[in-house]
């Protein structure tokens, strides 16, 4: 495992960009590009990312960047990766998409590209709602969450896209978090050298969207792992493996109280004790299931 001191000094995603203070996606992107280096083509659908990194004069990515329509990134990247092969160029094509562009409107093209096993790295930075439009629920929004279109709390559970992706039989699926940068870095390094469709989902807090104090961005990401609500894992060659940061928290007694996670985020403020119980039950069940899968070939 890479230690924090071993991370490259080079920056490919620059400061002075248009992100909000405490933005999670920028922490993720900065470290992803550290792992990928300069030889990468980035494909980004309509999202916070495109307005964070592309407006003049605050453009901040130092790699080629293609901003595409909302539903289109996996398709556009498919075309791009094939063309690069034809032209004899060797580079990583990376899709960098939000959860709305991945879980909802983009899912058909993501699934299509995965089924064709296109040689690309698809990264979904998951901030659990449409944040660029001002905070509207997506199918990545967890149960009970307040958003502009779920004013009394979302009634449905989060869609399990990593497992859906794994069911395509692609070579690599992983979840990661901006609070565990070295784990994230290692996963990107591993995926970088693989062929075929690779899917990585990064938990990325959104301070204005989650009604989260600016300085608590990383803290909330850490708590998401420690409370077991966002387990980190890899599915490599169909074999499910819980990642080191999440290992301890598979056991209920080791997990931090869900309250710690909820109380710092305004988006959960309206939840009553009985709701939290319900969500806790769901977390227990998910972690039990993951513990049972650990080390097994599931797809």
């Amino acid at each position: 495992m890479t230690s924090i001191k071993q991370l490259p000094y080079e920056e490919y995603f620059l400061a002075g960009n248009g992100s909000c203070p405490g933005c999670g996606l920028t922490i993720g992107l900065r470290n992803v590009l550290k792992a990928l280096g300069k030889n990468v083509y980035m494909v980004v659908p309509a999202s916070c990312s495109s307005v964070v990194q592309s407006p003049f004069p605050n453009s901040s990515a130092t790699v080629p960047l293609l901003n595409t329509p909302f539903a289109a990134s996996a398709a556009a990247a498919s075309g791009m990766v094939r063309a690069l092969k034809i032209m004899g160029k060797d580079a990583v094509v990376m899709v960098w998409a939000g959860d709305g562009g991945t879980f909802d409107i983009g899912l058909a093209t993501v699934s299509g590209a995965a089924e064709r096993n296109e040689d690309l790295l698809y990264i979904c930075y998951d901030n659990e709602a449409y944040m660029n439009t001002g905070g509207h629920r997506s199918s990545a929004t967890p149960l009970g969450t307040f958003t502009g279109t779920t004013p009394t709390g979302k009634r449905e559970n989060k869609k399990n896209v990593p497992l859906i992706m794994a069911a395509h039989g692609i070579p690599y699926v992983a979840t990661a978090s901006i609070a565990f940068v070295t784990d994230l870095y290692d996963k990107i390094m591993k995926a970088k050298d693989m062929k075929g469709f690779r899917y990585i989902q990064i938990y990325s807090p959104c301070t204005p969207g989650w009604l989260l104090p600016t300085e608590k961005s990383v803290e909330s990401a850490k708590l998401a792992v420690q409370t077991g609500i966002y387990p980190l894992f890899e599915i490599e060659g169909g074999i499910f493996k819980i990642s080191a940061p999440s290992k301890a928290y598979l056991k209920k007694e080791k997990r931090k109280p869900l309250h710690d996670y909820f109380k710092i985020q305004g988006r959960f403020k309206h939840l009553k004790e009985e709701h939290i119980k319900l969500i806790e039950q769901w977390i227990d069940q998910m972690n039990e299931e993951y513990a049972a899968l650990d080390g097994k070939k599931i797809f």
Binding site: F103, I105, T133, H136, P151
Partner: peptide, 24 residues
């Protein structure tokens, strides 16, 4: 989006339902 938000908040009072779908 403000129309969607308005409908989500209010259409229920008029016996209707508003749904946010996965795309247009």
């Amino acid at each position: 989006s403000s129309i969607l938000e308005f409908m989500v908040k209010n259409i229920g009072n008029f016996g209707g339902v508003a749904v946010q779908t996965e795309d247009e």
